[in-house]
Design a protein around this nucleic acid. Structure first.
Lengths: 208, 208
DNA sequence: CTGCTTCCATACGCTTGAGTATGGGGTCTG
DNA sequence: CAGACCCCATACTCAAGCGTATGGAAGCAG
């Protein structure tokens, strides 16, 4: 019974063995719950049940639900920014970076579902600034990439907005089951169609 | 005090003069509330307060909250289908129909906000079938239009999905305040950019 | 005027979740 | 080993919303 395993650090337990949780555990579990049920469904007691614990633990780590939401969103924003920076340094060619951005749509499922959940309540005072910062950062990344391809500033901004809007809308269609998932039949051809239409055809005749 | 105005029909009162409500009044008010606060915020008591009445009235007209949501969504679906049929017969030229579809993005604000609210909870068993029917209907409309422009079936379906995804994503960006509203500076140029990119450039070279 | 139907008000019980208070079992330190 | 500290359980209060039960006012029929 007496597990005398000397556990010096208390940060390595995920959520299965020891019911000793850190604030990071609560934040990550909160993000998972947000991805599944939405921001409005982030409640303390259901989250505690999910972790196999009671809310007495929660109110020791956090002053309240608002603080949990705030710090979980900050954590998610940092992760998203790191991924974006990695994308910036991944491929030298801007066209390859854009194509990779499009292809990434169906990967990083958790991040995408969290982003959609945040889009669902843009009026929340804790969600709105994070959402705006993340979206602005991603739009700037796309705008810079298109500008590197030779488009002027206005056209690059418009094309970036168009690509990003198609990305967000594709996530919605995917959740509704009306767009093919990654690995499904027809997914690759659609991705190629998007890249052909939005990335490769960078100089279309505007004048009729 | 005694308003002896002989009101024979009880269907014409909106929600201001007489506190005598019909099921249609409840459904329309529910749709407005959904557009503002989302589906999850559709509660009986707040809606009754909004109408200046108590929930004793509601439970006379409806058996419960679920029935109100179901009938309100059916009503919205009928409205959306009527608008789509009107679009089908508006312009003879498919290209003009597509351009008009894109331009319509910033009009019909209530319908758009309701659609976004439904997208926010696609797991709800009462929302999911309505959402899927409406999206499928709109996608078929777009696919047929692109097929009329000469694209083969696969390309038309992919282009329709791309246009529709960009439409949904644009709504999201608009709510976040990161896309210009109708009438704002930069809106028209963006719309023209979208039409040029997605509608007019209908034959791009697929083979590299 | 009487009685019936329609529509709404009021009052109640039930459930869920927020936040607080307090105790108790481990774990580390002296 | 004794005390302090960290982490969690339990037991409350409070508020909001669902659904129900019942009464009451207004309108219409006879």
């Amino acid at each position: 019974m007496a597990k005398s395993s000397s556990v010096a650090e208390s940060q390595a337990n995920s959520q299965a063995e020891r019911p000793r949780l850190t604030p990071a555990d609560w934040e990550l579990a909160a993000l998972e719950l947000i991805a599944e049920k939405g921001v409005n469904s982030l409640a303390v007691e259901p989250l505690a049940r999910r972790l196999g614990i009671t809310k007495g633990s929660f109110y020791w780590h956090f002053p309240g639900r608002d603080q949990l939401l705030t710090e979980a969103l900050e954590r998610w924003e940092r992760l998203d920014e790191q991924r974006l920076v990695q994308s910036l340094h991944s491929d030298a060619c801007p066209e390859a970076r854009l194509a990779e951005f499009v292809r990434r749509t169906s990967r990083q499922t958790l991040t995408h579902r969290i982003y959609l959940a945040l889009c669902s309540c843009p009026d929340d005072p804790r969600v709105q600034p994070v959402l705006k910062r993340v979206t602005t950062r991603r739009l700037r990344f796309l705008t810079d990439a298109f500008a590197s391809l030779g488009l002027d500033e206005v056209a690059a901004a418009a094309r970036a907005r168009l690509v990003y809007a198609s990305y967000v809308g594709y996530l919605q269609l995917q959740i509704q089951g009306l767009a093919p998932d990654r690995g499904a039949e027809g997914f690759e051809s659609y991705i190629e169609h998007v890249i052909d239409t939005l990335v490769r055809s960078r100089q279309q005749p505007v004048n009729s």
